[in-house]
Amino acid sequence: MKLYALSDLHVRYEHNRKALESLAPHPEDWIIVAGDVGETLEHMEFAWRTLTARFQKVVWVPGNHELWTMTREQPALRGEARYQQLVEHCRSHGVLTPEDPYPRWPGEGPHRVLVPMFLLYDYSFRPDHVAEKDAVAWAMEHHILCTDEAMLHPDPYLTRSDWCAARVEQTLARLEQLPADCSTILINHFPLRYEHVRLPRIPRFSIWCGTKKTEDWHLRFRAEVVVSGHLHMPATLWRDGVRFEEASLGYPQQWSWRGDISRCLREVLPGHTL
């Protein structure tokens, strides 16, 4: 029994949809989908219909793309209402979400708990000399502006930073209730550490990539592996003896050179050891 991860499916692209349909069955295995499945419920429907037929269990966390308010969808929900709509849609397909009880990994090995999280970002992944209020202007100096600024609404919170703070607080309360004898697989769309935002072509996009409030969570909550996406730069990284898996698929031109989509699956468990 294995645990796999794949993020940033972006199934609005036909090439990605066909690739997902080409995945071989893994009837004994679980898969983590770490966000950015697509932008509409139709995209989500396609992904869950495809993946639940191939894997024993699917675990999802939202990316920023799922949270966009698409005006052609009715009702065109915003913010928290949009997120709750996605949660209910996932549950209707038997897909686990950040709002469900954290599942214990049933495979071989020590006591492990999978922790799907929805934390957002708060513009804190920036140099110390840049104030939060100036962060977007700082990015725009290099002609960088995330689509979230127009399409990811924080309602009922005033700002996305406020929503992020609330999500961090809610998640911390749950993490602190985990038994002390278990290790964790932490799962979030956005990286947990600023140092892992490796974007050489667009470094100032980092402000839309996470929060410094999670920098020590891999140690604080006994992580064996941390799974994320968002960057479209898949990699296995190590910090403090903890494995970090960036599991993005990405846009067709970013991954097609790698060949079959099966090569893009990241093996989380049993996975690699130092």
Rank of each mutant, 00 (worst) to 15 (best):
Y83D: 07
Y102P: 12
H89A: 14
V58F: 05
I32P: 01
A24P: 02
N64R: 08
R91A: 12
Y83C: 02
E14Y: 02
C90N: 10
P98K: 13
H10G: 09
I32S: 05
H15V: 12
P103V: 13
L9N: 11
V37N: 01
T71V: 13
G107E: 02
L9F: 10
Q56T: 10
E66A: 08
P101V: 12
L86S: 09
H10Q: 14
V61Q: 04
L67Y: 07
V87L: 14
S22E: 10
F46T: 02
W48I: 03
S92K: 13
E21V: 02
T71Y: 11
W60F: 15
H15S: 09
W48V: 03
T97L: 13
A5Q: 05
E14I: 13
V59M: 08
L9I: 11
Y83G: 02
D8T: 05
S92N: 14
S7H: 10
G94S: 14
V37P: 04
R12W: 06
S92P: 09
W60L: 07
H10L: 06
V87K: 09
P98Y: 07
A53K: 14
P103D: 13
I32E: 02
V33S: 05
D8L: 03
N16P: 09
P106Y: 07
D100C: 13
E39S: 08
K57Q: 15
E73L: 06
L9Q: 12
G35E: 15
L96Y: 12
M44S: 08
G35Y: 00
E42C: 01
V87W: 07
E88Y: 12
W105L: 06
G38E: 02
V59T: 05
H43E: 08
E39Q: 09
E14H: 10
E28I: 00
G38H: 02
R82W: 10
D100G: 15
R104C: 12
M70V: 14
A34C: 10
V87I: 15
L9W: 06
D36S: 08
Q74E: 14
P98H: 10
I32A: 04
V58L: 09
Q74L: 14
P101G: 14
H15L: 12
E42T: 04
L41P: 06
E66P: 09
A76R: 10
P75W: 11
T71F: 14
A47L: 07
R91Q: 15
A5N: 06
V33E: 04
D8Q: 05
